[in-house]
Structure formats: structure tokens, C-alpha cells
Design a binder for these strands. Structure first.
Lengths: 264, 264
DNA sequence: TATGTCCATCTAGAAAATATACGAATAAAA
DNA sequence: TTTTATTCGTATATTTTCTAGATGGACATA
């Protein structure tokens, strides 16, 4: 019996339960009932199924505290990072501001995104008017969108620019929503997107100048033991890496050691 | 009939469907079947329920393209940002690197988090050994944790420090996992957490020095029309704001105009 | 014209979940 | 000490949800 053998709905519930046990160290039927709106009977069934699945380190019921307590060597069925599981830990009060810092969410026009998605699916080129931060609005151009990407802050469009003869990253928000979005088939095959199909393996180390003790904290914080932290992405996204990881800021605690490239 | 009247499982499915229609502009039964593992019959039922709910701008079936197409004035039942909905747009190939830039995920010790959560719940003080980046490891101290917070990058612990006589933000990863985590009741009531209970309203504007046209792009990108963008958070989290929004970097396109404070 | 794909719908039946009731252990309040 | 509240578990009958499998329609492509 595995987590994947279950139906989607119950699997979702057990994953939630798993996270409660992992990060809170405790869980009740009430947690399931409040979160999913199921009955007490069903919640009890879910607990039994969970206990059946978690044979390596099952939680135990503590009648004194009236909750299930995770085993001290508890192993998550579906491992999660603390950031993903934050909502498990944060009490949600309506009205008052969240206990999470608001993010700089970029807006996007639904219709524009749908047109681009459509062009990607059909493999057509599409006509757009694009405003770049440096050169201002253009008069309209044909691009061949291939996929959406994300740098964690905003969503980008990866597309071949016929004007430039290369693949570039575009910000959908800078596409004029009143562009024609006219589509046309691509006459000759596009070149390979080399940067996309190149793996960039970035090796990071604690910033030069940190004391040994500080370096140790940094290692623990980012979860690596040896000399380097290995992070893997695509060369096409590497441009965004330093900013996303804050390597270019004054208080940076990591720096690049080296970068390896290999075809995917 | 409203989205909230539905059971959790079906509501999840309809929200997914809603996002497909919103951002892809199209949806099939197959999308539901692949994502939730339901039958074709159930997927067809979900579509009918969705059509019943989306009375203001229902999608239409296009027999030629063999998909449902969102109305051009489509209104999302459950509005979402593009960043949240990114997984709807990104094709997921296993094996190859993701099309999203990896995030600098901070690690955290489950057991430590569970102890802290326990202390918050019970309202007790807890004994921990904390290593700060500046002053190094301490000899152990009592703190009174009140809640978890998040700056979007890592999760923090908000706690009253008896040593300092004030509320501070701690990084759980810097708490020694071998701390005693001994608990004791708090003898006299804690002072109010004034910074937590103060609303910080931050007014941002396009960075001075940008051209009018550039400022216009910035406004559209961050979704504000007038002079300022209003962002609301808690004073206790304000310290993280500039870094999270990249206001302290060279390429920043927003700057603070003013900040208002008011009690919550 | 044949084939494949996508849709919808029908029916019977399986599976999932509920409502309701009952009993047990514990802590705190009366 | 007794009562109340909270949490657990389980059992029953019932309702709701979902599936399996079959049927048919519209359209595109070969």
C-alpha cells in the first residue's frame, strides 16, 4: 500500500495530515475536518489509513494531550520544505494583515497569456508589440514562443525572435494587450534553443571573508556539508540566478565558485 | 449555487478548471482526468457544474478545435495571480531541469519546528541555544515564541526575548537542534508586541530618474494607475521589505515614497 | 468512406463519505 | 465527587459521489 495508490482526494488529505505531523509534531481529526470539511468518521478512517502507510515511524495517540504525536524519528511520507508548509504553521486571522510579507506580484493580462499559450501549442509565430525597458515600444514583430518560464518573481515567455535571430526571454506584461496576436505558421524550422538545452550547474560556497563559524552557519542554513552547494538549472535561466539568490547584494552570504555546463 | 457550496474535492477540480480557462484560455475533460484521476463521466459532470456557476461569462465548446474556449471577457471564479498559476502553463517533463529557476530554500529541522510550535500553542517559554550571524553562539536563553512569520524566503520565529526585553525575529535554522527545548510557564504577562500590532502601509512609486515611458511600464507591471502603489504589512515584518522587493538593488524600479503606521 | 478523437449521456453498481449513535479515557469545572 | 467537555474509536444504515462500459454525435484526416 502506497500513497500513490489512493484516490486524489484522500491522498491530499493524508499529505496534509503528514505535514501537520511533520512540522507541528501533532495532529487531530479536527485538523482534517476543518480543512477539508469531512465528517468525523471519515477523518477517523483517514487516520487509520495513515497509520497503515506510516509503518516505519507511526505517530502515537496520547490520551493525556488528546492528540496524535509524531514519532521523534518521524519520517514524512511526502517530504516538504518549510516554506511550502508555512500555511500549516501560520494561524490565519482574516481582517488583520498576513503573517507573511507580501510579495511583489507582477500583474499579467489573461487574454495575452492565453494567446501566447495558444501560439505555443500550435507551434505558430505570433505578432506582438513589445515594450522593452531600454529601447521603448516597438512597431510590432513576429516571435515564435516556445514555453513559459519562471524566475520565481515573475513569469517569462521564452521565444525565438526573428528580428534578433535568437531566443530571448520576454515579460508578458510588456506585451501590448492590443497587439494583433495574429498567428502564422513558421516557414523554416527554428534553430535549436541551445541555452535552454544546456544544463548549468552552479557551485556556490560561503562568501569569502566570513569566519569559519559563520561559514558553518551558512552551510547548515542552505543544507550542504562539503565545500560547495550544487544548484542545477538551465543556462537560459542563469541570467536571473544571481538576483534571485541575492548574490549581488551587500549582505550576500554565498558566492559562486564555478559553473559547469553540459548539454541536456 | 456558489463555488463554496460544493464539496472540497469538486471545488478543487473546478478551481483547476477555472485556471485552465483563465490562463490557457481553453480546457478539456482530459485536463481534469489527467490531473485528478477521475473518469470521463465525472469530468463531464464537472464541466456542466462549471457552466452552471460561470453564468456571467461561460466558456463555449468549439467542436472544430475540440476544446472548451474561455469567453473573451472571461471572469475567473477564483481569481489567481500568474505566479500561482504557473504550473498550469509549464509543461512538466521529468528528468530535465524545471522551467522554473530553483529557489534558495532554507533547510529547517522538523523536530526543532515542532518544539517551537508546541511552545507557541501552550504559551510557554522555551530554552534554546541560538547562533546569531553577528555575535556567534550563545550559552542558551529563554524565549517566549508567539508565532511563525515568513519573509517569502525563509520562515522566522517571532518571540519575546527575555535577555533583550523585546520581541525579535529568529531564524529556526540557527537554533541548535540539540538545545534542551525545556519549557516553563511565563510568570508575568508578556508586554504587547507593538510592532506586530502595527500596520505598516508602504507607498511605492516608480524610481526617480526613470523616463515617463519607463514609469508607465513599471505602473502597468505592478498593477497601479495613480501616483503610488500601496502595500500593507506589519511593522514587525517591515525590516525584510526592501530586500524582498529588491528596493536596495541597483536595478530597482520602485522606491519608497512614504510609510504610514497605524495600530491594528 | 473509414478511422480516430473529442464530446455527451445512460444505467448499474462500486466506492466514498455522512449521519447518527454508542462507548471509553482524560481533564477541568461545578 | 459528580458533571461536563473533549478527544478518541467503532458500527450501522443511508446518501452522495464516482466509475465502468456502452452508445451516439460532430468533426478532421487519411
Amino acid at each position: 500500500m502506497k500513497l500513490d495508490d489512493l484516490k486524489h482526494a484522500q491522498r491530499e488529505r493524508l499529505i496534509f495530515l503528514d505535514r501537520c505531523l511533520t512540522w507541528r509534531g501533532m495532529a487531530n481529526r479536527k485538523d482534517l475536518i476543518d480543512h477539508f470539511g469531512i465528517s468525523t468518521a471519515q477523518a477517523a478512517l483517514d487516520f487509520r489509513v495513515y497509520l497503515g502507510l506510516a509503518h516505519s515511524s507511526p505517530p502515537t495517540y496520547d490520551p493525556v494531550r488528546k492528540t496524535y504525536i509524531a514519532a521523534s524519528e518521524h519520517e514524512a511520507l511526502a517530504p516538504s520544505g518549510l516554506t511550502e508548509a508555512f500555511d500549516i504553521l501560520a494561524g490565519v486571522d482574516e481582517d488583520t494583515p498576513s503573517s507573511a510579507l507580501p510579495r511583489p506580484e507582477r500583474k499579467a493580462d489573461q487574454r495575452t497569456i492565453a494567446f501566447l499559450h495558444q501560439a505555443i501549442r500550435s507551434g505558430n509565430a505570433v505578432h506582438v508589440r513589445y515594450t522593452s525597458m531600454s529601447s521603448g515600444a516597438d512597431e510590432g514583430q513576429w516571435i515564435a514562443p516556445t514555453r513559459f518560464t519562471s524566475d520565481g518573481e515573475s513569469v517569462h515567455l521564452r521565444a525565438h525572435s526573428f528580428k534578433r535571430g535568437e531566443y530571448r526571454n520576454y515579460l508578458p506584461i510588456r506585451i501590448d494587450p492590443d497587439s494583433s496576436f495574429e498567428e502564422k505558421p513558421i516557414d523554416k524550422p527554428l534553430p535549436e534553443d541551445v541555452d535552454w538545452n544546456t544544463r548549468a550547474i552552479i557551485w556556490l560556497r560561503p562568501k569569502t571573508g566570513l569566519s569559519d563559524e559563520q561559514a558553518k552557519v551558512v552551510r547548515r542554513e542552505f543544507g550542504f556539508e562539503g565545500e560547495w552547494l550544487r544548484v542545477e538549472t538551465r543556462k537560459a535561466l542563469e541570467f536571473f540566478f544571481d538576483r534571485r539568490w541575492g548574490l549581488d547584494t551587500v549582505g550576500a552570504r554565498l558566492e559562486r565558485a564555478k559553473t559547469d555546463y553540459e548539454p541536456i
